[in-house]
Design a protein around this nucleic acid. Structure first.
Length: 206
DNA sequence: TGCCAGGCCCTCTTTAGGGCCTT
């Protein structure tokens, strides 16, 4: 599979449209079946983190006060990621914060997001749930650190992505996994998945 | 004033409702 950037945001809440802002971001570059580069930073958006979010993530208002400005961090991380395809767990969440924080520095993205949550529902249908932490346990993936910290979650989402790639190669006998195939799978209905995988098997093997 | 996310998925569906998942 071509190189991708797996990202994860920690934020003050669920919706940038409701005034929520990012507090931390991590991006890990996955290439040739492994993580080859990492970026992580807390970010100060000048907003207060609610107490229950401090408890959830361990990211406190004191930590954010001494962090670099959000715009500075977003410039760095968007340069780091470049035009690589971006992967995130529940990508609709990270994509709306990515877009909202980039818009504040008058940048916009060109690439699509790929969603490891949607892919997991298709490729690991027997998992008891498709929360990142449950999938890590279910697939025996290494716990990379504290859950709800950006770098640990991005590393674990990267491990999950590689596990999904293995699932396609070994279980479904897809000879070559591409980002384009992942995009197809995540928008394919459960009923149409066998047809989609059969086409992927045939595309490069005969 | 009172409201307050939203995209995806499943099903007892499609003229809809409710759960999952992210912080």
């Amino acid at each position: 599979m071509e190189a991708v950037a797996v990202i994860d945001f920690e934020t003050t809440g669920l919706s940038p449209a409701q005034g929520d802002r990012a507090t931390e971001i991590a991006a890990v570059i996955v290439e040739d079946g492994r993580v080859v580069d990492r970026y992580q930073s807390l970010m100060n958006a000048g907003v207060r983190i609610p107490a229950y979010i401090e408890a959830l993530t361990g990211i406190t208002n004191a930590m954010i006060r001494s962090a670099p400005a959000a715009g500075e961090v977003m410039r760095e991380v968007s340069d780091f990621v470049g035009n690589m395809p971006i992967v995130a767990h529940n990508a609709s969440f990270d994509a709306k914060f990515w877009d909202a924080e980039l818009a504040r520095i008058e940048r916009s993205r060109e690439q699509d997001f790929v969603c490891s949550l949607l892919l997991s529902r298709r490729l690991l249908p027997a998992a008891p749930s498709h929360k990142l932490g449950v999938l890590v346990q279910y697939a025996n993936l290494p716990v990379a650190g504290r859950y709800h910290r950006a770098l640990a979650d991005a590393e674990m989402a990267a491990s999950l992505l590689l596990r999904l790639e293995d699932e396609l190669r070994l279980r479904h006998q897809v000879p070559r996994v591409s980002v384009d195939l992942l995009r197809q799978i995540q928008r394919t209905s459960k009923a149409q998945l066998p047809t989609c995988l059969a086409a992927a098997r045939g595309k490069t093997s005969g």
